[in-house]
Nucleic acid binder design. Structure first.
Lengths: 338, 338
DNA sequence: TTGTACGCGTTATCAC
DNA sequence: GTGATAACGCGTACAA
């Protein structure tokens, strides 16, 4: 049924070794021979058996992407960036979501992926997360997204600086009580969350503004959560006049909560998001823009490089951030004045 | 370095054959022996070499998901549903996006995936799309999402009925000029697009309402596109008083276009979307709701079943649809009256 | 119930 | 530049 390398060898009148060399583009093959082998392989519709090739070569021929979520905006886009790069390589992309690490545990990826991948690509997860930490035991290169770790390649943005930029923008607008819609209570298994928290706090401290627990609420990175968080903040004794949400989706929920309370974003309460989600433009949301697809693409490229040059020293890449100011942020006005 | 089956056999004092049988849960193994082998394997941290196992057994141990996009809402959610099911199986999930079939061609998935998957899961793509049609030559089961084809398993919704329901809702509200924001000009490589077009037309024809080219505009399934499409429709000599958008995201754009023109969704122009996107609630959009993640999950389950029982006759599964009515649709009022 | 031994389709190491 | 041939690690008839 399926052609084997021997069929090609026989048909081309050469040995299997030569077929192997010819097809893989290795040197020391007569151009004429190579071409003949190519023709025969083409004609007989031959494709190498990956299983056999992998067994013989010792290479797995694939890389695994470990992500907490697949369906969420950020992760989908990063994944897309990764896939586009890998498409151009010879490697298979194995997708493995580990779900929310705080939920019921699935089989840790390490155990299931043992011996079957040449490298890992990890999105957003802290390297000490249970189920993630184990992948470093495997002796394959790892490219980290949104995190760093000794001996690993990594790509990401400066979350601390991004959060600072967002909060500083609010400070510049005269706000003094600046709230935070975070993901969940620290510590979290997501690095960006920690870092944005630090950036938020640093900006406030530098400006000698209060950092109160009362100014923070968890939004769990969902629209619903953001809405609840904003509602919570509004119900506080002394509510913030501006809010920094750690993601655009949570900011969307915050905007909705404001409107539900008869408040106008920007005019009554300023909101800054984080991501550069397409909808932010449509909802007139000021936000920190990160190059999401490119983050994925660069990480994939880094991993490919690591596989090509095993000895090369891992690099850390930080991609630039931007801020788009829209109507959701404005100068602070005393609410009683309006 | 890495343990082999022989190491386990030696350590457990049995043959490799017994180790293989014991570890795979095959019958005809003394429970005591099996347990001992298990213990040894556990202790030595042994995992089978997938390459060797696949070569020997002839099974690829993985399935491929073919999708046009990864980053878009619908596809990300379907993919997530698939992944959750596959996570519980022994199969690897190979992700392969083929991009927009009308764009520059990448390597067709068939060629790259030959001999390396036990089955295919195809999302939304017409089976006669170039690069997709070839996968049926491989002699492996295929589960189709949003499409059907002889000999294939399939899962989806009734797009014709869904579109009909949306348009009928508008008709019931008294609208007579009902516009359509479609994806792109027919023919398209996406089945849902064709079917929703049919449902739109059928509903209008049944109600003896006009089906004019002037009432249709392409939105390419993006927010931006939907906005442009709505703008186009509003500029027509005799613009529609209601619009059915083939996706929620296009509907979001349409809502924005309306506001940009000083029109109020629902009051001035009614809009119905399609999907059940989380944001639709926040934007007060009436929409047809489909169980997206479940579509993916069911398709994956179908494929697993097909792999387990190769002789079983393929089934076609149609999942139920719902409609959520919100503020974006309302009784038609003569615009001059307002 | 268990063991033996061959085959799976390549790659890689030698010789030539 | 090319050809034998020994791995690679496991699954599986077949025999015991």
């Amino acid at each position: 049924m399926a052609m084997t390398i021997r069929d090609i060898a026989r048909e081309a009148g050469v040995s299997t070794a030569t077929v192997s060399r010819a097809l893989r583009g290795l040197p020391n093959v007569d151009p004429v021979t190579r071409e003949r082998v190519r023709q025969v392989a083409e004609r007989l519709d031959y494709v190498v058996s990956p299983a056999a090739s992998r067994l013989a070569s010792g290479r797995a021929g694939s890389i695994a992407v470990i992500t907490p979520y697949i369906a969420r905006w950020y992760f989908g886009r990063v994944l897309s960036g990764i896939e586009k790069v890998l498409q151009g390589s010879e490697l298979d992309l194995l997708l493995s979501s580990i779900g929310d690490p705080s939920e019921t545990h699935r089989v840790p990826p390490h155990r299931k992926l043992r011996r079957r991948v040449d490298g890992f690509l990890v999105i957003s997860l802290s390297t000490d997360t249970e189920g993630v930490n184990e992948i470093f035991e495997a002796d394959v290169p790892v490219a980290l997204i949104d995190t760093e770790r000794e001996g690993c390649w990594s790509v990401g943005i400066d979350d601390v600086a991004g959060a600072r930029m967002a909060v500083q923008h609010l400070i510049n607008l005269g706000h003094e009580r600046i709230g935070l819609i975070s993901g969940r209570p620290l510590p979290t298994p997501f690095r960006p969350e920690e870092n944005r928290w630090v950036g938020y706090r640093d900006a406030l401290v530098d400006a000698e503004l209060p950092v109160e627990p009362d100014l923070e609420a968890c939004g769990h990175f969902t629209i619903e959560g953001g809405e609840r968080a904003m509602t919570t903040l509004l119900a506080r004794p002394n509510p913030p006049t501006a809010v920094f949400a750690m993601s655009d989706e949570m900011a969307f929920g915050a905007l909705r909560a404001l409107r539900a309370h008869g408040l106008q974003p920007g005019r009554d309460v300023s909101v800054v998001g984080f991501d550069g989600h397409e909808m932010s433009e449509h909802l007139d949301l000021t936000t920190i823009v990160q190059p999401v697809e490119e983050i994925g693409a660069r990480a994939a490229m880094a991993l490919l490089e690591a596989l090509d040059h095993p000895t090369r020293e891992p690099q850390q890449l930080t991609l630039p951030l931007g801020m788009v100011v829209r109507g959701s942020t404005a100068f602070r006005r005393d609410r009683s004045t309006s």
